[in-house]
Design a protein around this nucleic acid. Structure first.
Lengths: 190, 190
DNA sequence: GCTACACATTCACATATGTTAATAAATGTA
DNA sequence: TACATTTATTAACATATGTGAATGTGTAGC
């Protein structure tokens, strides 16, 4: 059972046959460090499952500042879901932080999977639901906690991210400047 | 055509018949100012559509601070969607800010509607999708902008909220203290 | 109409994060 | 290996928001 199969199976029990049918609709792809998976302004044609490596999504605000939205390690999905689902222009960029192996699914295949494999429709609905829930919870936590607390929580819940992702991405994900994260890390060491 | 019908019709074209079938699954309810629609720790049994009035959701953090998550005026839906969909304990409270007329739907009716009225299943999926998208966009904007900018954006996009909702709720929604909002409003007037 | 209570404003001071700039360390590439 | 580039650290100072307390203003209920 490969990673994708395992990951789907965690949410819905899926038969070998259904999974293979789904797998036939996907495409394994390599993406090099710093290459773009999605460009802001384009319509997101794919969603990606990360087999190995790291991708991240971010957007550039009016003032030209970059804000990291999501960091996807192995076994996570990433895209500009809004754009993918609505066919409108993406507002996020998605880019590889490391050379990565991903499995991608086109909009067309996604819809076919939803139409013909009920378990997969259910899976994707749960995926969106969870994405929403996490997003809500993240908002609720952003406000409550200081940058230091947010960093410590990230270290605790996603040590892998802290180990493998350059600090300035993490700073941006936490909503602070790299210098501030550096200062915060210093106070933690003491 | 009542507000609920109109609101659904904005997302999916629904026949009179389908709508009436759906309506039969709902229950009009009055809720008084400061009454709870959902209590943190309970499972959210209903979602609510606001016909008149205002409800809001919030959570209380470890330190006892209250954080407003959503403010729902007329034509908006509100609940702890996570709890409603997953049957787990709610982490948010939902409470009326004004005496309000709402239309509520139980989990059972929600599922029945999804099973028997395809348009309604589609509607609810879109509702969750949109909730997710708004949530994502909200995160992306929290970090980019100062409290003053966030307030000005709220005034522009939801003037009704600013007019009708007490300031300390708005401050909390923006992630700042009432005193800070007061100070910010003063600088805007100058 | 009074009284109490919630809400809003203002101020002085504390604190966290931003900004700018210099430097050091790490990494990629010729 | 050496050089250029990116990333991380540090410091001094600027700014925004928090905190606590006092005061003012409105509003609900008696």
């Amino acid at each position: 059972m490969n990673q994708l199969h395992k990951s789907i199976n965690e949410k819905v029990e899926i038969s070998e046959q259904d999974f293979n049918e789904f797998l036939a609709l996907t495409k394994p792809t390599n993406i090099k460090k710093n290459d773009f998976f999605i460009n802001e302004g384009d319509v997101a044609k794919y969603i990606a499952f990360v087999n190995t490596g790291v991708l991240y999504s971010y957007y550039i605000d009016d003032k030209g500042n970059k804000h990291v939205i999501q960091i996807a390690l192995e076994n996570y999905w990433i895209s500009d879901l809004f754009s993918f689902l609505s066919n409108e222009e993406a507002i996020f960029n998605v880019q590889a932080i490391e050379n990565s192996e991903i499995t991608i699914i086109s909009k067309q295949s996604f819809e076919k999977a939803c139409d013909t494999i009920p378990k997969m429709e259910r899976f994707f609905r749960l995926l969106i639901q969870n994405a929403y829930i996490n997003s809500q919870r993240r908002i609720s936590k952003i406000y409550g906690a200081s940058a230091k607390e947010r960093y410590l929580k990230l270290v605790q819940s996603h040590p892998q991210i802290v180990q493998r992702v350059p600090q300035h991405y993490i700073a941006s994900y936490l909503g602070i400047k790299p210098q501030s994260l550096s200062r915060i890390r210093k106070t933690i060491l003491e």
